[in-house]
Computed example of a mutant assay.
Amino acid sequence: MRITKYAKAITAAAVAAGGTVATAAADGVITGGEAWLIVGAFLGGLGLTWAVPNRTTSTASPEA
């Protein structure tokens, strides 16, 4: 199964932002500072994951 680095990065960004939203919304209010943290988590997850290349595999030896 091939997953492009874009799908991998978007998924990582969504997970990072989702975890931050869950933590920020624990008290029922998301402040401006927490909103910036959510944006930062999304962009950080997106950028850092996109920068790491996927592992290359040879076609001669399929994974079990």
Rank of each mutant, 00 (worst) to 15 (best):
A7N: 01
N54G: 07
T4Q: 06
D27I: 05
G47C: 11
G33T: 14
F42R: 02
G44H: 00
A64Q: 04
S61V: 14
L43Y: 06
A64C: 12
I10G: 08
G45Y: 01
S58T: 10
G45E: 11
A26Q: 08
T57E: 09
G47D: 03
A17Q: 01
T49D: 05
D27K: 06
A14K: 06
T49Y: 06
T20V: 00
N54Q: 04
A51V: 08
G33P: 03
T11V: 00
A22E: 12
L37E: 12
G40F: 06
I3D: 14
A51Y: 05
E63R: 04
P53H: 06
T59C: 10
M1H: 09
I38Q: 07
T31S: 13
L43Q: 02
A12R: 00
W50R: 03
E63K: 08
I10K: 10
A24M: 09
V39I: 15
T20C: 02
I10R: 09
A41G: 04
D27Y: 03
K5R: 12
E63Y: 03
V21A: 09
A24S: 11
L46H: 05
T56I: 15
A12M: 04
A26W: 02
A7F: 11
T56A: 14
G18W: 03
I3V: 13
A12E: 10
E34C: 06
G44E: 00
G44K: 00
E63W: 06
G18Y: 03
W36N: 14
L48K: 07
A26V: 13
A60V: 11
K8H: 06
V39S: 11
A22L: 08
